[in-house]
């Protein structure tokens, strides 16, 4: 069984049954999960910040890092697996975007990430069918390519499904 492990700012996809697409310990980062029922492809991006305008060089080098560059990059990646280039028919799930306790507005990075992502998805005519965002714990996410099942885990908590 293969694993596609995505670090911060990475994106990737797989349609190999038996593969697992996985990312570890999302804090304020948000994982965008795209499931394409038609081609049975699973794609994911691990997004750190909402807006690439703060560093164009980084955005060119690692488009998956920023919401506005990650989603086009992931959709493009998924066309290699035969998926629709604008995500038609895809199922969207979102998770991550956590906060520390007693956060103030400035530190609501997770919330800003989620908002930026939703805005961009909206422009593609896409919306999330399921989301597990916010709160104050880290999340590890893994998706089975075979079943499309999205599982989450966090230390000290029972695993849960999204």
């Amino acid at each position: 069984m293969g694993q596609v492990i995505l670090g911060v700012g990475d994106y990737g996809a797989s349609k190999t049954p038996g593969d697992e697409v996985k990312t570890f310990a999302l804090g304020s980062c948000v994982s965008v999960i795209l499931l394409d029922p038609k081609t049975r492809t699973v794609g994911m991006a691990h997004i750190a910040l909402p807006d690439s305008s703060i560093n164009k060089v980084k955005a060119a080098e690692k488009p998956g890092y920023f919401a506005d560059t990650a989603i086009p990059a992931l959709l493009h990646e998924m066309t290699k697996f035969g998926c629709h280039k604008k995500g038609k028919g895809m199922v969207v799930k979102l998770c991550g975007g956590a906060n520390v306790m007693d956060t103030n507005d400035t530190f609501q990075i997770g919330k800003r990430n989620a908002l930026a992502i939703k805005k961009i998805l909206w422009a593609y005519g896409m919306g999330a069918v399921a989301e597990d965002l916010g709160k104050n714990f880290s999340r590890t996410v893994s998706i089975s390519v075979e079943s499309g099942q999205v599982m989450l885990s966090s230390p000290g908590r029972p695993n849960w499904q999204l």
Partner: peptide, 24 residues
């Protein structure tokens, strides 16, 4: 706090602390 938000805590206690808003 920035380290924890970036996904690099030390396991179970990550983000299980309070930001002191008086830092401002």
């Amino acid at each position: 706090n920035i380290a924890m938000l970036g996904g690099f805590g030390t396991g179970s206690d990550s983000m299980q602390y309070r930001l002191d808003p008086k830092y401002t």
